[in-house]
Design a protein around this nucleic acid. Sequence first.
RNA 1: GGGGAGUUAGUUCAGCUGGUUAGAACGCCGGCCUGUCACGCCGGAGGUCAGGGGUUCAAGUCCCCUACUCCUCGCCA
Length: 601
Amino acid sequence: MATQFITETKRTHTCGQLTGADVGKDVVLFGWVHNFRDHGGAVFIDLRDREGLTQVVFEPDAKEAHDLAAMVRSEWCIGIRGKVLSRGKNVNPNMKTGEIEVRGSELTVFNKAETPPFELTDNTNTAEAKRLQYRYLDLRRAPLQKSLITRSKMNALTRAYLVEKGFLELETPFMGKYTPGGARNFLVPSRLNPGKFYALAESPQLYKQLFMVAGFERYFQIVKCFRDEDLRLDRQPEFTQIDVEMSFVKQDDVFEVIEGLIAKLWGDVLGVKVPTPFPRLDFDESMAKYGNDKPDLRFGLPHVVLTDVVRQHGAEGGVPMFVDAVAAKGIVKAMVVPAQYSLSRAESDKLEEYVKGMGAKGLARAKVGESGEWTQSPLSKTISLALRTAINTACEAKPGDLILFQFGRESMVQTVMANLRVHIAKKLKLIPEYGSGGVWNFLWVVNPPLFEYDEDAKTWAAAHHAFTRPHDSDVQYLETDPGKVKCWRYDVVLNGFEIGGGSIRLHDPAVQSRVFQALGIGEEDARNKFGFLLDALKFGAPPHGGIAIGMDRLAMLLTNAESLRDVIPFPKTQNGQDVMTAAPGEVDERQLKEVFVKTAV
RNA sequence: GGGGAGUUAGUUCAGCUGGUUAGAACGCCGGCCUGUCACGCCGGAGGUCAGGGGUUCAAGUCCCCUACUCCUCGCCA
């Protein structure tokens, strides 16, 4: 028989609140049964709410409550009334409330619970699919509660910071017009417009520029974006950005705002002082040394570009594979694994399997001997002394070092080497498998090329988007040497993750049309795709620029989570499915008819 | 679309070279227990070995297909 005190009583404290200072108080606590220990006489219940755990003890002398307490089980939702007692010598130093316990006099069962499908312990190793299926239970676990509470705090801090800096929180549509290029859009059929579709916004990019044209000067939004692309541990089909756009600014102004925001988040949430301004790394240098534009600088293992060395030595060098790769406009790169991290033969064979999975044909390697000779390498037989010496020098290779090579198509070599660098660093424990290890290496990657050459289509394509402003000094090359044009685009990177990116926009219609020409986009074509923005730019558009920060990634890194899924309450699995609700699901014929859609599976 | 790893009790896993009745821990249920906090002790229940097909005297184990999960390349202006 439940005592019904709940109807006339309010909760007085949370389960994370009571300390020795509260001894003697009458309290009412509500929460869930985290654990229980029945000693036949005393029954202990660890009561949990989002603030923490409190031990409640029921003694036999309070018979009604004691008998009921002996029946409660894990995850029942209950309320208790009792008196705060000191635990005396039985203090539990592992609990925030370990100085005290509540001696229960009354107990109400709000709701019983079935036995949970998995134990709701802090350190679970239950399969993620199972946890996602019962996400509402998984979310009861303290680590996830803590992460989402942190995320809530990040949202509040972000709003406060940006509002204080004069930014306006303005909203943009999710349902918009499909624009070609970029990420695949999720499509939404329109019932009122048969045969036509909205596209869910992959970002508020174009709208936020219109806010600048409209004269709002400083805009931000914490906003969902939708991209129908394959998932990764740091990619979900719907994700949240801190979207920012500013008028009358240079790159440095954007950097200052974002550095301040990140320093505030890390300071207020973690108590970590992040030094600003962040270091800046030239895009070209990043590609040369790390193979991508989001380098993890917590460790070394830089790449060495050998393309020129190979070219100089030519056929004399004795490595036809290198020469062929360079002749086919490919590149040659090397990476040194220092002797102190010696890899076994089996381990380097495994590395070869790993790189083959990314499209590499193999993994050439050479062990450097006492006098610079190479062993354990098929290259050692034919390579000339001169080339070998040149490579050793370029790599600063010492006896015992292992040199790993990759050559061929530039994009493949960069991808393979970039991933290999991180893979080896994890293997050698230079960086933790997950989390930051307490090291936060923020940086800006700057001055990338405006265009990249599309090998398949044999055309120049916008590396970011078609509205990025080129460096004034490079505008002269738009027609003659497009690959040489650098632009005001930037990415902010933390520990190997791109946590945000943006650009100063191109607001000059004359340069804009030259950019379109370089991209092979005709005037009519441009009008069809971006007409409204091009029109808008004609009406006194201010110089402007902005950035979007990946809020999920930021939260993941800030909370040391293993994946984005740990900082998103209801995430999708790698196939984009929600295993709890079974979305996406089929709909009936009538619904499809209503929106004039036929499936063709 | 490609590569890799995986799926055995409610959960996490073990299960060798194919061979009798598929095990452990935790959880769950029952009993005992007044100071535990990973309580303890005794007893018990619990299995479509992901699904389908094949090889074999015999398949959790070998082969093929499918589904699902995770990592990854492509993709993500």
